[in-house]
Nucleic acid binder design. Structure first.
Length: 232
DNA sequence: TATCAGATTGTCT
DNA sequence: GACAATCTGATAG
């Protein structure tokens, strides 16, 4: 996919028509915008995981399980799927693919774009932040830092009227020369043979990434090996 | 730095 | 009734 987009412009609805596996690395480097009472928080996506299709045993929609919770995943791509995990944390996903094909990309880590964004995120965060990953390195942490809860389930990322949006990152979003690591997804032992699939993507050496894979050096690839949103 | 148990509730069987 | 796409603080080395 090669879309000509101006950095800062909202990603178009068509961006979300691809599979979750395609979208996961493409979302790296894109900008997540969140409207809060204190102002707009802007941050860059640095870690994602793909949960794709009814055959993925790691997915909430495995086997076509369509319930009140997973309903958003069955809709057209471009909506937010937000759910509660372990009774106290929320997780944010970007729904992709066509209607009735449940696929989503879990956003696992973001980094604040500017100092003002970091200030707002720290304010929302609550607990002690010593290192970058403490702020927003992890799906539960980033939702707290951005004030995301189930009220945002179904929000449309491509709509200017939405309180949660996705905009194009810099000229190299989806890459920009940074190496991308593809590694197994986190905490889904029940997914059996799907647990080992390298469907987690993150920027190597980025301090906001939640967990560093020991074999990341061997597994990392130049970003040019992944689909690009922008031409060079 | 690494490991571990506890927290806490919506969701599904 | 069991468990979850997690995080945190405590404890040991």
């Amino acid at each position: 996919m090669n879309l000509e987009l101006t950095p800062g412009e909202l990603l178009p609805r068509s961006f979300y028509s691809v599979s979750a596996l395609e979208a996961a690395p493409l979302l790296l480097g894109q900008i997540l915008e969140r409207d809060t009472e204190e102002g707009v928080i802007r941050c860059r996506i640095v870690e994602t995981e793909s949960y794709g299709g009814v055959e993925d045993k790691g997915s909430h929609a495995y086997g076509g399980r369509r319930t009140a919770r997973t309903e958003v995943m069955f809709g057209e791509g471009g909506a937010a799927y937000v759910y509660l995990i372990y009774g106290m944390y929320h997780c944010l996903n970007v729904v992709t693919g066509p209607q009735d094909d449940p696929q989503a990309v879990l956003i696992r880590a973001v980094e604040p774009l500017a100092l003002e964004d970091e200030v707002l995120m720290r304010r929302c965060r609550g607990s002690l932040v010593r290192r970058p990953a403490d702020l927003s390195g992890g799906p539960g942490k980033l939702c707290r830092a951005l004030g995301i809860d189930k009220a945002l389930n179904g929000a449309l990322f491509y709509s200017g009227a939405s309180p949660l949006r996705l905009a194009a990152g810099g000229p190299g979003a989806g890459g920009s020369g940074e190496r991308i690591v593809a590694a197994p997804r986190i905490n889904i032992p029940y997914a059996e043979e799907y647990a080992a699939k390298p469907w987690r993507f993150y920027y190597r050496d980025n301090p906001y990434v939640s967990i560093i894979d020991k074999n990341s050096e061997a597994r990392s690839k130049p970003s040019s090996d992944f689909p690009r949103l922008f031409n060079k």
